[in-house]
Design a protein around this nucleic acid. Structure first.
Length: 199
DNA sequence: TGAATGATGCGCT
DNA sequence: GCGCATCATTCAT
């Protein structure tokens, strides 16, 4: 078992945390399964001044986790059927988080495949809704401490190579901000690619 | 291979 | 009511 990231990792500027999460491994242990995956695509949502951030309207019941301590999960329900998994960043009181958009299966592929409508490994976790469905994460898991032993991030296995920085996907406000990060050589990235060869 | 669209429910004005 | 940090399916090219 490799080393779990400490809370200090998350208590930093959100754009740095987002970039540094690429290549790391997300781990979820439940009664049903032990799952893990390599993070290949993320987006940053940074404070009340970021119009696309859920904290833009100020503190509400829904977004209160983002105002709390860094290193906790923020999971919300969207479009009537999907969940999105985020990691809270920066100091308590400053609302910011990193959305996990895509990953590559490492452990528990068969269990993820059973929960997915997809067959190929590289498509099972290629999207924020698909990631939560295959991992079995729901609103029940929002507010979980990522320094716990059930849900956490640990050091990556492979060396991180080229990182692409571009604009976020699926939003209508704050579209110009370059807050999306992905690994250029991954075939599991969900959204549009800025450049590069086709898979 | 890409554009359009329906599914489906919650939070907030 | 409307909009939403989505996805799978359907239809067109």
């Amino acid at each position: 078992m490799s080393s779990k990231l400490p809370r200090s990792f998350y208590n930093r500027p959100t754009l740095e945390v987002a970039r540094d999460l690429l290549g790391k491994r997300i781990v979820f242990k439940s009664n049903e399964a032990g799952l893990s995956a390599k993070i290949v695509e993320v987006e940053a949502y940074v404070g009340e001044d970021d119009p696309a951030c859920h904290a833009a309207p100020g503190l509400t019941k829904r977004n209160e986790v983002m105002y709390g301590k860094p290193g906790f999960s923020y999971i919300y329900f969207v479009y009537g059927m999907y969940y999105c998994f985020n990691i809270v960043t920066e100091r308590k009181g400053f609302p910011a988080a990193v959305l996990l958009r895509a990953a590559e299966p490492v452990d528990g592929l068969e269990i993820m495949r059973r929960r997915s409508s997809k067959r190929k490994a590289e498509t099972i976790l290629s999207g924020p809704g698909k990631f939560c469905r295959a991992f079995g994460l729901t609103a029940e898991h929002s507010g979980t401490d990522l320094t716990s032993n059930t849900l956490y991030v640990c050091e990556g296995i492979d060396q991180v190579e080229e990182i692409v920085i571009t604009t976020r996907v699926g939003i209508n406000k704050g579209v110009e901000r370059p807050y999306r990060f992905y690994l250029a050589d991954s075939n599991a990235v969900s959204g549009p690619r800025v450049k590069g060869p086709r898979a």
